[in-house]
Design a binder for these strands. Structure first.
Length: 419
RNA sequence: GGGGGAAUGUCCCGAGCGGCAAAGGGGGCGGACUGUAAAUCCGCUGGCUAAGCCUUCGUAGGUUCGAGUCCUACUUCCCCCA
C-alpha cells in the first residue's frame, strides 16, 4: 500500500488522509475511481439508537467518495442486525427484538444526510435496507444458490469464528451465519445497484472479502474491498468512550456542545491524524495546524472541534459550542447556553440539599457518589467548592439569571434553572 | 450417558481458614501538576432519610448465634471418559 501511487482523486484523498488499512486490489479500484465508476457501500448495524464515532469514519469515506464523483450507498442492517455480528466479540450480544431494531433504524437514518447528498441522480447517495431481501429468502433455495459456495472449512478459519473456538466461547449457529448474510448483501447490491466496492472498519475485512469471493463464484462483476484502520487514541485507548458512554452522532443523545468538547480534549499526538480523518479542512491548512507546538496546539484542537462539529451538526451549532466553551473556560464565566436542567422553584425554596441537586442535574449517579466527590473536592456551586455535604441551596443561589451553576470536575457544568 | 471443575462487588479480570461491604489489578471518576493535552503522583470506585441502616458473591432451599465460604437440588459453562 505504501508504495502505491493512486491516480484517482478518491484513493489519493483517502490515502493522504489516512483512511486506508487494507484493499483487495488498489490498481483495479483506482482505475474505476479515476473514471468515476465506483459504487460503494458501507453497512450500518441497528444495534443502538444512534451511530457512534467509529461509524463517522466510514461516513467520511463515503463523503470523499461522493466528492470525487462516485456513488455512495448506505446500507441499513435491518436484516443482519437480527442475526448479530460475531466479529470482534467474545460473547453473543443480547438478541434484539424486531421492534427495537426498527426503532433504532428510524433514529439512525437521519444522520447520513448531514454528510451525504441523497437523491435520484447517478451520483447521488442512496439508502437501502437489507431487511428488504434477507427476510424474504427461502431456506432451501438459499442453501442451493448461495450456501454451496461457502466452505465451512474456510468459515471456521475466519478470525471471528476461530477466536471464539480457540477461547472455547460459545458461538451459536445464527451468528455463524452472519458472514453469509453480509456476503450475500454485497452480491445483492452488485446486482441491484451495480455496487462494486464495500468499505468498513478493519474488523470487517473478513466479512467483506467473503462477499468479494461470493461475487466471483456467483458471476457478478469484479468486487472490491477497502477497510479503515482501527481507531485508537495515541495512548492506546479505544476511541469514542467518555464518562457518559459512547460518543453518539445524534444530537439528542450527545449534544453538539459535548461533541465539540470531545474533540477539544483530543490528545496532542492525535490532533493531526484526527484533523485528516474527521474534518474536510484542506490538507495545507491541516499541515499548518499540525506544525503548532506546545500550548499553541490548543488552536489546532479548537479548529478540529469546530470543523468536526460543523460537519455533523451545522455551522450554527459549532459556533455556539465554541462560544460556550470560550466563555466557560477562557473567561471563567458562565455561558447561558451551558446544558441546563429545570427544577421547580418551590422545591428549592424549601431548601434543596447540594447532593440531591447534583444528582438532579445528572452530573453524578447517586447521592453516595456526590458525597464522595465532595470529599475529593470535585463539586462546585457557582464556582465555589462544596465543602459540606449537608449544604443547602436556596433561591438566593440562583445568581446566573435565575439559575444555579453546578460543576463536576473542571469540565462538566450544568445550569440548574428555577422555574 | 458417566466422572471432574467453575460461576464473586451487574464494566472486566480475580483472591477469598464460617464473622465480609468482601484482598489485588485493569478500567473509570475526582484532586494536584499543566495547555480544557499526555505522562506522573494522591484519593475514590454498592445504596440510603448516613458515626446508623439496607441490599450484594449463578438460582432455590437447608445447617448455624452467624454462610461468598458447609449441605441439598436446580441452571449455565468448561474438561475428561463413552
Amino acid at each position: 500500500m505504501t508504495d502505491f501511487q493512486p491516480k484517482s482523486d478518491f484513493l489519493r484523498i483517502l490515502k493522504e488522509r489516512g483512511f486506508i488499512h487494507q484493499c483487495s486490489d488498489f490498481e483495479g479500484l483506482d482505475a474505476l475511481a479515476a473514471k468515476g465508476k465506483v459504487v460503494a457501500y458501507v453497512g450500518y448495524d441497528c444495534t443502538a439508537q444512534s451511530l457512534h464515532i467509529g461509524n463517522y469514519l466510514t461516513m467520511m469515506m463515503l463523503y470523499w467518495l461522493q466528492q470525487s464523483g462516485n456513488k455512495p450507498i448506505t446500507l441499513m442492517g435491518g436484516g443482519t442486525t437480527r442475526i448479530g455480528d460475531p466479529s470482534g466479540k467474545d460473547e453473543t450480544r443480547a438478541m434484539r427484538t424486531i421492534e427495537e431494531i426498527d426503532s433504532n433504524k428510524a433514529a439512525i437514518k437521519g444522520v447520513f444526510s448531514k454528510v451525504l447528498t441523497f437523491g435520484e441522480g447517478p451520483k447521488n447517495a442512496q439508502m437501502v435496507d437489507n431487511a428488504d431481501w434477507l427476510t424474504k429468502l427461502e431456506w432451501i433455495e438459499m442453501l442451493r444458490d448461495v450456501g454451496r459456495h461457502f466452505s465451512v472449512n474456510r468459515m471456521l478459519a475466519m478470525d471471528s469464528v476461530r477466536l471464539r473456538l480457540e477461547r472455547e466461547h460459545e458461538m451459536s449457529f445464527i451468528e455463524f451465519n452472519y458472514m453469509i448474510a453480509q456476503s450475500y448483501d454485497y452480491v445483492e447490491l452488485a446486482r441491484r445497484l451495480g455496487c462494486n466496492l464495500q468499505m468498513g472498519g478493519s474488523d470487517q475485512w473478513g466479512n467483506i472479502i467473503m462477499g468479494v469471493d461470493l461475487g466471483r463464484r456467483m458471476g457478478t462483476h469484479q468486487l472490491y474491498a477497502l477497510t479503515t484502520p482501527l481507531l485508537t487514541t495515541a495512548s492506546g485507548a479505544k476511541m469514542g468512550k467518555t464518562a457518559q458512554g459512547a460518543v453518539w452522532l445524534n444530537a439528542e443523545q450527545f449534544s453538539p456542545y459535548d461533541f465539540w468538547q470531545y474533540w477539544r480534549n483530543t490528545e496532542d499526538a492525535d490532533v493531526g491524524r484526527f484533523l485528516k480523518l474527521f474534518t474536510i479542512l484542506p490538507m495545507d491548512e491541516i499541515a499548518r495546524l499540525e506544525a503548532l507546538q506546545g500550548s499553541e496546539i490548543n488552536e489546532a484542537k479548537k479548529a478540529l472541534a469546530s470543523a468536526a462539529t460543523e460537519l455533523l451538526h451545522g455551522k450554527a451549532a459549532a459556533e455556539a459550542a465554541a462560544e460556550t466553551a470560550r466563555k466557560t473556560f477562557e473567561e471563567g464565566g458562565t455561558a447561558a447556553s451551558l446544558p441546563s436542567v429545570e427544577i421547580a422553584g418551590s422545591e428549592v425554596e424549601a431548601g434543596f440539599g447540594v447532593l440531591a441537586a447534583f444528582v438532579k442535574a445528572g452530573l453524578v449517579p447517586s447521592n453516595g457518589e456526590a458525597r464522595r466527590q465532595v470529599q475529593a473536592g470535585g463539586l462546585r456551586v457557582n464556582d465555589v467548592v462544596v465543602a459540606d455535604p449537608a449544604q443547602v441551596l436556596s433561591p438566593a443561589d440562583a445568581v446566573h439569571g435565575g439559575a444555579i451553576k453546578l460543576s463536576f470536575g473542571k469540565k462538566k457544568h450544568v445550569l440548574l434553572k428555577l422555574v
